[in-house]
């Protein structure tokens, strides 16, 4: 049938399979974990996990079928048009950015995020906010000193004055 219509069948993406397998594992774990609970506690999660397992298995089987058809189609159509199936994404879309950002850009972005939240947990918000703002603007944003310092000082200062002193609201305080 595939051969007759010769419609392009996209290749299965490894990421999809991994996600489906991960979800399958989650549902299996949930099902097993639920066994130790009393009936009324486990009834709903068990039902749910069973449904989830069924969906995941069907999905994985679907991926298997898709992979098979893709190979059939690719053999017929030749290799040159292989990866054209993806729709044209405009360069502002999040899918495009995630798909095309280089490894270094990813590493840098994740490093900044890690630094921010680690610092938030360790040093608390009042130290993190000005320092991170300054560092990020200077290094990642290559902004001028004046702008960065003002931004950082104002953000940190206001946060400290209003939240810390004036209203005394709970903030991530760090471990010190």
């Amino acid at each position: 049938m595939v051969a007759r219509t010769a419609r392009p069948v996209p290749a299965v993406r490894a990421g999809d399979v991994v996600i489906a397998l991960f979800l399958l594992a989650v549902f299996v774990f949930a099902y097993l974990h639920a066994q130790e609970w009393p009936f009324r506690t486990r009834f709903f999660p068990e039902l749910l996990a069973a449904a989830g397992i069924a969906f995941a298995v069907i999905k994985l089987a679907g991926f298997g079928l898709q992979a098979y058809r893709h190979r059939q189609w690719a053999r017929q159509a030749g290799d040159e048009t292989d990866e054209q199936a993806d729709e044209q994404a405009d360069e502002h879309s999040i899918e495009y950015v995630f798909g095309t950002a280089g490894g270094r850009a990813w590493l840098a972005a994740l490093a900044w995020v890690t630094v921010f939240f680690t610092s938030l947990l360790v040093f608390g918000v009042f130290i993190t906010v000005p320092l991170f703002t300054l560092a990020y603007l200077k290094i990642a944003g290559s902004a001028g000193w004046l702008g960065s310092v003002i931004y950082a000082a104002v953000a940190g200062g206001l946060l400290w004055f209003v939240c810390g002193e004036l209203l005394a609201v709970p903030m991530p305080a760090g471990i010190f």
């Binding site: 104002v154 206001l158 946060l159 209003v162 939240c163 004036l166 709970p170």
Partner: peptide
């Protein structure tokens, strides 16, 4: 920057603050 600053001050100042 101005707006951000105004925003910041209350964002943090959430819940409890009496």
């Amino acid at each position: 920057a101005l707006l951000g600053v105004v925003a910041l001050f209350a964002t943090g100042c959430d819940s409890a603050g009496t």
